[in-house]
Amino acid sequence: MVRNRSVTQVFAKLSNLIYPRRCPICDEITGGAEKLICDSCRTVLQPVREPVCMKCGKPLSKEEAEYCPDCLRRKHRYEKGRAVFLYDRVMRASISRFKYHNRREYADFYAEELLRAHGRMLRSWQPDALIPVPLHKSRMRKRGFNQAALVAERMGERLGIPVEEKLLIRVKKTSPQKELNDSARRENLKNAFQLCGNDVKLKRVVLIDDIYTTGSTLDAAAAALLTAGVEKVYFLSICIGRGF
């Protein structure tokens, strides 16, 4: 184990010489393979802080509130979820470079922060597997990778939890969610996911995604998993909107 870790560290240093690690916030070179973010850039991040919605984890403006308006208005299919950062201008730019400009190394930082903020809660859920929210095959071909899968793989490695990347598939090519209102988002994702195989032995799973807005995507994914026999579905997301 020690030897394997040493080999990994040597490989990381060599890789950093060829492809220097870039900061997920300013996109400048961090100066080392193990330095995931610039010190100054960490100060501009807006982590999600209490009070938060007990269901989805959106930050709330009122201390006495328990749920955000969205979770009061509709019944979600997942049990509970949490995110690390507010989806503000800074994180919008970071996630965009991650997804559309091949900044795959950002996944190390996102996974580290998810575990730092919610690792204890994740363990308390006792998941049988982490499941990254899948991309449609056409989008996967165009992008070349699934951003949620990169984050899930790093988290799974750290925690020793299996990552089931091929269990849940996206069978419907949906329109971009950001262009739709709440009801259109739900309709857009209706029957968008299905399980690859009928013999699902998992009881508790955690969906991993990059951005949580209304929860429509996670509800659709959770619905497919619950129909297949999964008992409880949770989620963790890098970013989340405000709950008001």
Score class of each variant (00 low, 15 high):
Val7Thr: 02
Gln9Thr: 14
Gln9Gly: 00
Gln9Asp: 13
Phe11Gln: 15
Ala12Phe: 12
Ser15Asp: 13
Tyr19Pro: 08
Arg21Pro: 00
Cys23Tyr: 03
Pro24Ile: 04
Asp27Trp: 11
Asp27Ser: 11
Ile29Tyr: 15
Ile29Gln: 04
Thr30His: 03
Thr30Arg: 07
Ile37Gly: 01
Val44Thr: 06
Gln46Val: 15
Val48Ser: 05
Glu50Ile: 11
Val52Ser: 11
Lys58Tyr: 01
Leu60Asp: 15
Tyr67Lys: 10
Pro69His: 05
Asp70Ile: 02
Cys71Val: 01
Cys71Leu: 12
Arg77Ile: 06
Glu79Tyr: 14
Lys80Asn: 15
Val84Tyr: 05
Arg92Lys: 15
Arg92Gly: 02
Ala93Ser: 14
Ile95Trp: 06
Ser96Lys: 11
Arg97Lys: 12
Lys99Ser: 03
Tyr100Gln: 04
Arg104Val: 09
Ala107Arg: 04
Glu113Pro: 06
Leu122Gln: 00
Gln126Phe: 07
Pro127Gly: 00
Asp128Leu: 01
Pro132Gln: 00
Leu135Thr: 01
Ala149Phe: 07
Met155Trp: 01
Gly156Cys: 01
Arg158Ser: 14
Pro162Tyr: 10
Glu164Phe: 02
Lys166Ala: 03
Ile169Met: 07
Lys172Met: 10
Ser175Gln: 15
Lys178Gly: 13
Leu180Tyr: 02
Asn181Trp: 08
Arg186Tyr: 13
Leu189Ser: 06
Lys190Ala: 12
Val205Ile: 12
Ile208Asn: 11
Ile211Glu: 01
Thr214Asn: 03
Gly215Val: 15
Asp219Gly: 10
Leu226Trp: 04
Phe235Pro: 02
Phe235Lys: 03
Gly241Leu: 01
Gly243His: 07
